[in-house]
Design a protein around this nucleic acid. Structure first.
Lengths: 231, 231
DNA sequence: GATATTCGATCGAACGTACGTTCGGATATA
DNA sequence: TATATCCGAACGTACGTTCGATCGAATATC
């Protein structure tokens, strides 16, 4: 029912054409192998501190051998982030397909994100932490995918807000960024192999967020100055 | 009423002793000047990518001149984080003093944090983004302060949870980390000089969090499996 | 079928550079 | 003279990347 690469960012990336006879299992497998090693090293050390020599050792290839598959260190980082964001986005669209209720959609979005995180911690850590490590066209291309992921989520939040009384003006951008804050901060503290299941955590986050969003009515904001938002 | 260094992390840090005659206004001012420049550069480029030469240029001193005030690049990062975390913690304790209601305390905590962020964006970005750039004793010392900040907040969350029906088992650690996620992610998107006031944003975050925490009652969790937390 | 040729995959070794840090001296203040 | 402040110049190193060669298997030639 679901396509196979739902939770693996390293499944058959660029199309391999014009190859008369299939090379058994070599080029793409080798490329993915190195990319996975690089993901672990960059997640562990950070992009700038991670060295190509460390990646080579982790992938068990020579230093020069890496450059047969990747033209530069920047290209490595780009591919890691590009594939992870694409998987994240495709997973989301797949899960949302056919569901209409925005509240259910939000629960699915959070569950999808947390599950993907649990299955690909190094990749998502690199995505969360190295957002500004690239520049130029590569950065712009990643920003475009990220924006699409944001738009998908923002759209859900917007439709949830519509279900509330229109008198209750919800700040959807702020709410969406709060949600992304909760999710993108996971890599700092959540260890899926330490007991709590991804689905359990996803439920907690969903309820925390949804109740906070929907329940804003009484506004028990009793404080000194409630002055604000002079924009 | 409030002490003077409430919102400035660079106010007279380590004690300067054994100075028979006061050097007018030189050593500490100069040190702070370089430290502020370093904060801006590291916030902009990231710790590993930021060079001592760039710090020197930003502070308008020579490269070697920096080493008259700081023994190493690591020491620079340590001091930036140490001072910011201490200011954050002292601000919090000051604001909470005399307040008993944990809900009010949480609102004050969020407001204090967001205000500090708005007034010291580079420093807090360095605190949020470079949490793992140090190691050894320096890292441990910072971890200790951070843990104290966490404990203060966690304590508030615990007492809010107690006010709910005890039947409503709130996961306080998860809730606290969600809150820190929202706050620590601010540096990725919030620009205080682009319209929205820190107090306004703090109110939105407080309500989002508090309502989400307190309002969890009906648990409209209607989904397939509500299995979880097998720990 | 045997030999020659091509080509992708791989590696050891090196290149050039940019970095953190240090050194010795210069300048100014007391 | 003694000391604090500051700097130009250099040192040693570690990094990303490149080069040239080797190996082996597929392909072409006879």
């Amino acid at each position: 029912m679901l396509s196979k690469n739902t939770e693996q960012p390293f499944g058959s990336g660029t199309d391999v054409m014009s190859r008369t006879i299939e090379p058994r299992e070599t080029y793409d497998d080798r490329l993915n192998h190195i990319l996975e090693a690089a993901t672990r090293v960059i997640a562990r050390d950070g992009y700038e501190k991670a060295t190509m020599r460390a990646v080579a050792k982790a992938a068990d290839v020579s230093l020069a051998g890496i450059y047969h598959y990747f033209e530069s260190k920047e290209r490595l980082l780009f591919l890691i982030q590009f594939r992870a964001f694409n998987s994240l986005l495709n997973n989301l669209k797949e899960k949302l397909y056919g569901v209409e209720d925005p509240v259910k959609q939000l629960r699915l979005m959070v569950r999808s994100h947390v599950s993907y995180f649990a299955a690909n911690m190094p990749a998502l850590k690199v995505c969360s932490h190295e957002l500004e490590s690239l520049s130029g066209p590569a950065y712009e291309e990643l920003r475009h995918i990220r924006h699409e992921y944001y738009e998908q989520t923002r759209n859900i939040v917007d439709r949830i807000a519509l279900k509330c009384e229109p008198t209750n003006k919800i700040e959807c951008h702020v709410a969406t960024m709060c949600l992304f804050g909760m999710l993108n901060w996971l890599y700092r503290w959540y260890n899926p192999s330490a007991g709590r299941s991804p689905h359990g955590l996803a439920n907690l986050i969903s309820e925390q967020f949804l109740t906070g969003l929907l329940g804003q009515s009484g506004m028990p904001n009793g404080e000194e100055e409630a002055t604000d938002t002079p924009s």
